[in-house]
Nucleic acid binder design. Structure first.
Lengths: 365, 365
DNA sequence: CATCATCTTGTAAACGGTTACATCGAGTCC
DNA sequence: GGACTCGATGTAACCGTTTACAAGATGATG
């Protein structure tokens, strides 16, 4: 592989000049620049990234630490991250499936010199110390954090508010016995959604009967299995809020097998609005949590705070609004209505448009 | 940030010794090693990756070039890649959404010095030259290639065989008018699946009536929209093979809206066996293309060929068997039968077990 | 013509590691 | 006790860039 020296020799100039040419420096005479370029092409040269990183002390790379990347929520988040990162001509170094905190820290440390910063998704509570530790090495942006790490920016989804909206929607439809399938204990999203659920019921003066908070772990299977518990409850709930779409879909699948009609006998709602939510039967009423945008924003926030080195003392925390998406799995059923959050700060216009755009054209038109 | 020199000074040794300690070299007296370790912990030191890469000429990083990472197939593939890469204590540098060949090449070049090799997913035909070009820089493994690039290893899915199996299954169920919803033109997977479809019909002595090959682009929406075309066909097909699961799901959604019963009035089959395929109603008969394993194998293949520098002249090409997964969307309908390929080389035992393991437990047991 | 500013280019010192080679003690052997 | 071996450690060159600084060329200016 050709190095900068080879190019310099071939072009009859010094390495400094070659380096300047490749950085588009205006200090090089255009005739010289042309010569250098010719030599570079001829030798098939391109600069060595490691050497550049070492010399300039930046890697033009952002690290991404994820817990595990199952499912569409993650893949959408990564997509958002990738696009935003690429817009800055940076690269993404991805590392996922971190079992425990120690492993996470050791991976983060091993990235020193290869990345300029880190996007960390740590949905498990109790990792505050881990984050603080990592944040000593690089500027970190937290994705959907439960942990309010003091030293870094964060962007999260309005979990509690979203859950609140969807449950209020159920209540407005006349439901009074509403159950929830919870997410993994320890998971912050799950916890917040549960909080929103309870708050909505409390506000409406409804209680949560014993056994109406069923445990789950965000997998389709756990949704599927929750059906059994659910159908055994007396009095039976008339509606159920699954803490994410995967569980809602697993649940509906089980209900269909058991011959329980949705929404007539049991209304089902989810959370996340994964792309498939609109394609299951009946289409799933859910809460839009835009994973793509979540990733995108996190990256933008990172660059913002990297550019403004000053005032880093005040880490920002953005909350992405969640929007109720009404389809027919809860029986209100025209499959078209969309109810953006009214409580939410910030204009929901964007999300609405997005949803409008992706709506399927009616058949047989 | 502490450097190796700081540690050396603090421990009262030379940088060479510190370096040795961090590499676990046996040449260091254990007392000295302890001192160094203490100093390192104290200074919160960890080695600079860029410097290491520069010095050793390896980056312990594999690049991954993807076309775009929509949907679960990609996220599963990445997951497989990530796991396999991590098992070798390497990192993943991810770069996706490459619009055109030029961009792909320029990104690949810019990675020089930061990666040791590349996994490239290039489902568009005609990129052979791009690949060859990139392969001059690093060892490349192709993921699901249509292009038979001569200079690099590849791992792909038995697209044609899989399609052949599923269509034969339809034929065995008695269907004679079978349509296909095609994938994007130019996409190699799509092309192969179409080939398998045609072959199965030809073998059975069945023709493909005019208009029975409907165009699509692998998106749910295109599946949804294909319903309209499909229902307009005379004579109407009794079964349809959608070239991937997303389209099959979109299609079933449209059929449900149009009041067409699946599988009674129209049998539907897909391809990929994405996790959700078993949770839609009716559960989708499809072909298992294990994306996770695809990614995993690609990485393993890369390491194999990296270790055996010799005999690189003979790039291997693995084909991952595809297994028919019979659920009820085609009407054979016990939702349990699994028919592994009989034509397939290699033992299908593994895939079968996997499918068995993930089968949902019956409700109310 | 000497002086000076301006452009262009080169020299060489970082950047933070790795590692071939040299060195130095302490045993071991005869 | 000198030669030799062997294990532990240090010295310094090298990896491929960037960049502060020096320096040479050129043309303008007084």
């Amino acid at each position: 592989m050709a190095t900068i020296k080879d190019v310099a020799r071939a072009a009859g100039v010094s390495v400094a000049t070659v380096s300047r040419v490749f950085q588009g420096s205006p200090l090089v005479a255009s005739a010289t620049a042309r010569q250098v370029q010719r030599a570079a092409v001829c030798l098939d040269y391109s600069p060595n990234g490691a050497a550049q990183s070492l010399s300039t002390r930046n890697a033009r790379t952002l690290g991404v630490l994820l817990p595990d990347l199952h499912g569409e929520f993650f893949s959408e988040a990564i997509r958002g991250i990738d696009h935003a990162v690429r817009a800055e001509r940076f690269q993404v170094l991805l590392s996922s499936s971190h079992a425990d905190a120690r492993e996470m820290i050791s991976v983060a440390r091993s990235l020193r010199g290869r990345i300029d910063g880190l996007i960390v998704m740590a949905p498990d509570a109790g990792s505050a110390r881990v984050i603080e530790d990592i944040a000593r090495y690089f500027p970190v942006v937290l994705l959907n954090p439960g942990v309010r790490a003091k030293s870094c920016c964060a962007v999260s989804i309005a979990n509690s508010d979203g859950a609140h909206q969807v449950v209020r929607h159920l209540i407005e439809l006349g439901h009074e016995r509403i159950a929830i399938v919870r997410g993994p204990s320890g998971n912050v999203d799950a916890k917040e959604r549960l909080r929103g659920f309870r708050k909505a019921l409390r506000k409406a003066g409804l209680g949560v009967p014993r056994g109406f908070e069923i445990s789950g772990d965000f997998t389709q299977r756990s949704g599927y299995e929750s059906a059994q518990t659910l159908l055994g409850l007396r009095p039976r709930p008339t509606a159920v809020f699954a803490s994410n779409d995967y569980m809602a879909i697993g649940l509906m699948s089980a209900l269909s097998e058991a011959g329980v009609r949705v929404p007539e006998e049991l209304a089902v709602a989810g959370f996340d609005d994964i792309p498939l939510a609109q394609y299951v039967r009946p289409p799933l009423t859910t809460v839009r949590a835009n994973a793509y945008e979540l990733g995108e924003r996190a990256v933008r926030m990172w660059f913002d705070s990297a550019r403004a080195r000053i005032a880093r003392k005040v880490p920002r925390h953005e909350v992405l609004p969640a929007a109720l998406v009404v389809r027919s799995s809860c029986g209100s059923g025209n499959g078209a209505a969309l109810r953006p959050s009214l409580e939410e700060a910030g204009p929901p216009a964007r999300a609405v448009n997005q949803i409008e755009r992706e709506r399927r054209r009616p058949l047989g038109g």
